[in-house]
Design a protein around this nucleic acid. Structure first.
Length: 315
DNA sequence: AAAAGGTCCAACCGCGTTACT
DNA sequence: TAGTAACGCGGTTGGACCTTT
């Protein structure tokens, strides 16, 4: 019944690989390929289990592995793919030639994740963190605008009560979604990921009003309304927010979200968003802080080639 | 110069899925 | 079809190295 045991676990070596072991593994795979990890260690004369050999090969010895610092474009790609795929490191690695899932995972946890946190962006949801925002500004702008256009408040009264209470110190963008109201009465679905929730638009609406970058709209509610309602699902990148024709995020079509709409490059865009001088020295000594500033200045406009972001096979 | 704290990354662990008998 | 092991993936760890005090 079942397969024969792949190997005798007893007596197998663990821990760091020696140069001799690396050479044995490399020589064997170059001659015979790596079709069967179960029998490979024995045939190659290694006191390792197949799993360890596979890991060593795929993460370190593979000849096509790209070494060295991640480029700015690679970082961007990782961030955007992560916002869509989550912690699907192997899927992300598949879009970054020469990079391994382990390498990307490590880089995310040690660099990108921390940078996003410093920028006030939740690295899990890729949303601005509400606990870092001025909540009174958020509430006032929302309520004042409601008065102006004569509609119901944008924010659920439950949210106001929640924010007013003293026991909500850690409110984030991941706060209970029932606090948010969609203007077309769509409901939160627990089975859907957060980014697919129809009311997320309204969540960004509220957040956007309190972001510094939206200050210029504070005295122009009409334009603020327009801009907010064409925001793509991920607040710091996407298509041209000022042009409703290039976005499927119309105020009356928040259920029409498609990954294609997020991933595709609007034909009306005259140039890649990162073609500016900010990105001319990406691999030539860009510091962590400089990268962070670049991210901050472009939080609301990100773009990468659509073919790189074709994730239809993961959905 | 040395200790403390932080960062980086290779490697291991555990679990879900797939393949085999 | 059931049982078992291999495979592949994401999460975590441990130690080497670096930076700061």
């Amino acid at each position: 019944m079942g397969r024969a045991p792949c190997c005798d676990k007893n007596g197998l070596k663990k821990g760091p690989w020696t140069p001799e072991e690396d050479q044995k593994l490399t020589d064997y795979i170059q001659k015979n390929g790596y079709g069967n990890w179960r029998t490979l260690p024995k045939n190659a004369g290694l006191q390792r289990c197949g799993k360890s050999c596979r890991l060593r090969w795929t993460n370190y010895l593979r000849p096509d592995i790209k070494r060295g610092r991640f480029s700015f474009e690679e970082e961007e790609t990782i961030i955007q793919l992560h916002s869509i795929l989550g912690n699907k490191w192997s899927a992300i690695a598949g879009r970054l030639p020469g990079r391994t899932d382990n390498e990307i995972k490590n880089y995310w946890n040690t660099h990108i994740r921390k940078r996003l946190l410093r920028m006030g962006i939740d690295p899990v949801t890729h949303s601005p963190r509400l606990d870092l925002l001025d909540l009174s500004t958020l509430l006032n702008s929302s309520i004042n605008f409601s008065r102006l256009i004569g509609t119901q408040p944008f924010i659920n009264p439950d949210l106001i009560r929640f924010l007013s209470s003293s026991d909500s110190p850690n409110l984030q963008a991941t706060a209970p979604p029932n606090f948010l109201i969609s203007n077309n009465n769509t409901q939160f679905s627990p089975s859907l990921p957060l980014q697919d929730q129809p009311h997320q638009l309204m969540q960004y609406d509220a957040v956007a009003h309190s972001l510094p970058g939206f200050a210029s709209h504070q005295n122009d509610h009409a334009s603020a309304f327009s801009a907010v309602h064409v925001l793509p699902n991920y607040g710091y990148y996407g298509s041209d927010q000022s042009d409703p024709e290039t976005s499927t995020f119309q105020s009356n079509s928040s259920n029409n979200f498609s990954f294609q709409s997020v991933l595709s490059t609007p034909s009306s865009s005259p140039a890649p968003l990162h073609s500016g001088s900010n990105y001319n020295n990406i691999n030539g000594g860009t510091t962590e802080d400089e990268r962070e500033i670049s991210y901050c200045s472009d939080m609301l406009r990100f773009e990468i080639p659509a073919d790189m972001l074709d994730v239809s096979d993961f959905i």
